[in-house]
Amino acid sequence: MSIQHFRVALIPFFAAFCLPVFAHPETLVKVKDAEDQLGARVGYIELDLNSGKILESFRPEERFPMMSTFKVLLCGAVLSRVDAGQEQLGRRIHYSQNDLVEYSPVTEKHLTDGMTVRELCSAAITMSDNTAANLLLTTIGGPKELTAFLHNMGDHVTRLDRWEPELNEAIPNDERDTTMPAAMATTLRKLLTGELLTLASRQQLIDWMEADKVAGPLLRSALPAGWFIADKSGAGERGSRGIIAALGPDGKPSRIVVIYTTGSQATMDERNRQIAEIGASLIKHW
């Protein structure tokens, strides 16, 4: 067993022997301040990774656009098919120029040779490549099948209805392509620590998230040296922004954090800054 596999296998073990965790309302004060600064709703939840206990939450059962955070769930569904012998990570998928959609920095470079399922998941999570996500959605049967996968996990809230990039439209009061912070946090925890996926697939999923290259201005910008984070960000229309993450000190994750916002007129930089400040408060009061 590799060191990384050992780390993920012992996530519940280490967490069980940690000192009790206590909620700190100071972080919620910052979440509410972010709402004021952005002029928009902000949803927040913080779960203990081992027990699933909610440590703090704000608007945990209000719907927010998922945006690209759905790509972690998508690759979880792909990995479940791999575990069941219905898919192979090494299978190569070929596609054409007509398949390319807006923001496809990886797939646009491989029109000639195609990409493997493993490479597509890596591109979808680490670079948020939209064509990679659409190609992977095709392998599982489309958005409705991802929703069905989530329902089978016990998540009857999260739903995907459309493809990239239309799913980022974020129309107010439109339930399409949305989740709730509580539902997303619980589902992410199941994917990373539950028995739904094999140990190898859980490790692969967290490795992809740990290698995320496009979430630097968010929670990662607030992390002290030595902290662990595996995350996936999302951005959408109407001032929408979000991030889902597993993080913790001492090089291992111990909490799940989900943050979503929508309806702001603020710039992307300002949305990023507010999420980073929430992260800084979380870490300060850990």
Score class of each variant (00 low, 15 high):
25 P>Q: 13
26 E>I: 10
26 E>Q: 12
26 E>S: 12
26 E>P: 09
27 T>S: 07
28 L>H: 08
29 V>L: 14
29 V>S: 15
30 K>T: 12
30 K>F: 03
32 K>A: 15
32 K>I: 13
33 D>W: 09
34 A>W: 08
36 D>W: 15
36 D>P: 05
36 D>S: 14
36 D>E: 15
38 L>R: 05
39 G>T: 10
39 G>S: 13
40 A>F: 04
40 A>P: 03
40 A>T: 09
40 A>W: 05
41 R>K: 14
46 E>S: 14
47 L>A: 09
48 D>V: 04
50 N>D: 13
51 S>Y: 07
56 E>F: 03
57 S>T: 11
58 F>I: 07
58 F>L: 09
60 P>N: 10
61 E>T: 13
61 E>Y: 15
62 E>R: 05
63 R>P: 08
64 F>T: 02
69 T>H: 06
70 F>G: 07
71 K>V: 01
73 L>Q: 06
74 L>H: 00
75 C>Q: 02
78 V>L: 09
82 V>P: 02
84 A>K: 15
85 G>N: 11
85 G>I: 06
85 G>R: 11
85 G>S: 10
86 Q>N: 15
88 Q>H: 14
88 Q>K: 15
90 G>L: 11
90 G>N: 14
91 R>A: 07
92 R>S: 09
94 H>M: 11
95 Y>E: 03
97 Q>G: 14
98 N>Q: 14
99 D>N: 09
100 L>G: 03
100 L>F: 08
102 E>F: 11
103 Y>T: 06
106 V>Q: 10
108 E>L: 11
108 E>A: 15
108 E>M: 13
113 D>R: 11
113 D>G: 11
114 G>K: 04
114 G>P: 03
115 M>Q: 08
116 T>Y: 03
118 R>P: 05
118 R>C: 14
123 A>Q: 04
125 I>T: 06
126 T>V: 09
126 T>E: 14
127 M>S: 09
128 S>F: 01
130 N>Q: 00
131 T>Q: 00
131 T>R: 04
134 N>Q: 02
135 L>T: 06
137 L>S: 06
137 L>W: 02
138 T>A: 14
140 I>Y: 08
140 I>K: 01
143 P>G: 06
143 P>S: 06
145 E>W: 10
146 L>E: 02
147 T>Y: 02
148 A>R: 12
148 A>D: 13
151 H>E: 14
151 H>K: 13
153 M>S: 11
155 D>L: 00
156 H>T: 15
159 R>S: 09
163 W>P: 08
164 E>D: 05
166 E>P: 06
168 N>T: 07
173 N>T: 11
173 N>D: 13
174 D>V: 03
174 D>P: 01
175 E>M: 14
179 T>V: 03
181 P>M: 02
182 A>D: 09
184 M>G: 01
184 M>V: 09
185 A>W: 00
187 T>N: 11
188 L>A: 08
189 R>H: 14
189 R>P: 04
191 L>P: 01
191 L>D: 02
193 T>N: 13
197 L>T: 05
198 T>N: 12
200 A>L: 11
202 R>E: 08
202 R>Q: 15
206 I>F: 10
208 W>K: 01
209 M>Y: 01
212 D>R: 04
215 A>Q: 03
215 A>E: 06
216 G>H: 08
216 G>W: 08
217 P>S: 09
218 L>V: 04
219 L>Q: 04
220 R>E: 03
222 A>I: 11
222 A>S: 11
222 A>N: 10
222 A>D: 07
223 L>N: 04
224 P>F: 03
226 G>R: 10
227 W>H: 02
227 W>Q: 02
228 F>W: 10
228 F>G: 05
229 I>C: 09
230 A>K: 02
237 E>Y: 14
238 R>G: 11
239 G>I: 02
241 R>I: 03
241 R>V: 04
242 G>L: 00
243 I>S: 03
244 I>E: 02
245 A>G: 11
258 V>F: 01
259 I>L: 12
260 Y>I: 08
262 T>C: 09
266 A>T: 14
266 A>H: 14
267 T>P: 13
267 T>D: 12
270 E>W: 08
272 N>D: 11
273 R>Q: 14
273 R>V: 11
277 E>C: 09
278 I>H: 03
280 A>E: 15
280 A>Q: 13
281 S>Q: 13
285 H>P: 01
285 H>Q: 11
